[in-house]
Design a protein around this nucleic acid. Structure first.
Lengths: 212, 212
DNA sequence: GTCTATAATTAGATAGAC
DNA sequence: GTCTATCTAATTATAGAC
């Protein structure tokens, strides 16, 4: 059962880095410190492993998301702002989820159908509800269909971390210090909240982090 | 030379759909209607073909971008708004570019280094200049480092089209009509401009397109 | 310039010992 | 539950006829 967990963690990273087809089961096994044949013992096939790894990944993501949300008042604007901040923090800590999504969503497939119905649709509808409450409260003047809001927010929140290797090449300055640090992540969250709700909605956490 | 062009177009689609490693040279050749060995005749290797396809793709993207920009006054705010609208239109018409970028940028590599220095850095600096002019004009209250602005805007503009297959599954209603149509793209551009510059900056094109 | 044929490597999956 | 060894099929690249 320990091997199983090690395989899931390794699979998560390899699938995120390479996509399903380019990911080698031997590489995944090596990352877990076991032989390739262990993989078909604990999981029936590469496809079954992929689904298990994605379930595992969404579970970890939910954990990150809950850990990242700050307490605060439950009016729609505050709730929305705190949700956006938590989203930015979670995708920055677990970029593997959004990497797997872009790998799979570039074309239609059985795997995409499965991941949409198993994991994505519920989250889409959750944001839709949050957005409708925000609109009804009058806290935003933005008006667009949910699908536009969903992909605009998710893209704005995730691309910096999905493409982190590119971002590091674009702005590399001091090699000893990662440019994608907590201060940058909080500044990013601030920017996205300001874009969606207007200026002057400081977070509780922003003041405790040094700004770059 | 006609075969060469056909191979480039096919390669562009296959690399965007699958990523470099998972893309098969036989599939690319089949897409161009020729044999696999033609590929090593016109290009030395899969890697050389990839670079040529990416050059070709950025060329086509520039063409889309220029075609999508509307005439208008050249004050920073108008210039910025029209640039954002053109960006949304271009990425919607050629999502292959951003798909290839996410495939490559999930991890560091020789190919990533090449694409950043050959194509991305100049565009990054172009947006940086445009952004500084906008800031100086006082047309936005948003304040963030260029790398945050770059990935927030690009992610917000591109994810809907990069993940188009997923978006179609999320909102499928009438199967005979694509949900990602011109009206949705213009509404998306409107939303992004409003997020960056505030409400009430209608485009010339928005009024000529039926809204969903 | 395009083709057929194939070499060399690697992939996922399986068999069977322990 | 883990291992070694191997099967079958797919991959990129190459050789050489026309």
């Amino acid at each position: 059962m320990l091997t199983r967990r090690a395989l899931l963690d390794s699979a998560l990273h390899v699938f995120a880095a390479s996509g399903f087809e380019a990911a080698s089961t031997r590489t995944i096994a090596a990352g877990a410190g076991v032989r390739q044949s262990q993989l078909t013992y604990h999981f029936d096939s590469k496809d079954v492993l992929w689904r298990a790894a994605v379930d595992h990944l969404f579970g970890r993501f939910d954990h990150e998301l809950i850990a990242a949300i700050e307490p605060g008042p439950d009016d729609p604007a505050s709730l929305f702002a705190r949700s956006i901040r938590a989203l930015v923090r979670a995708v920055s800590r677990l970029p593997e989820l959004n990497r797997i999504m872009v790998h799979e969503a570039t074309g239609d497939s059985e795997r995409l159908a499965w991941i949409v119905e198993s994991h994505v649709r519920a989250r889409f509808e959750q944001l839709e509800t949050l957005w409708r409450a925000l609109r009804a409260s009058g806290a935003t003047t933005l008006d667009a269909e949910p699908v536009i809001i969903y992909y605009t927010i998710l893209g704005a929140a995730s691309l910096l971390y999905v493409n982190a290797a590119e971002a590091r090449r674009l702005v590399r300055s001091d090699p000893s210090h990662d440019v994608i640090d907590d201060a940058l992540i909080e500044a990013h969250a601030d920017t996205l909240v300001a874009m969606l709700l207007g200026p002057s909605r400081p977070s509780a956490r922003a003041r405790t982090v040094k700004r770059g």
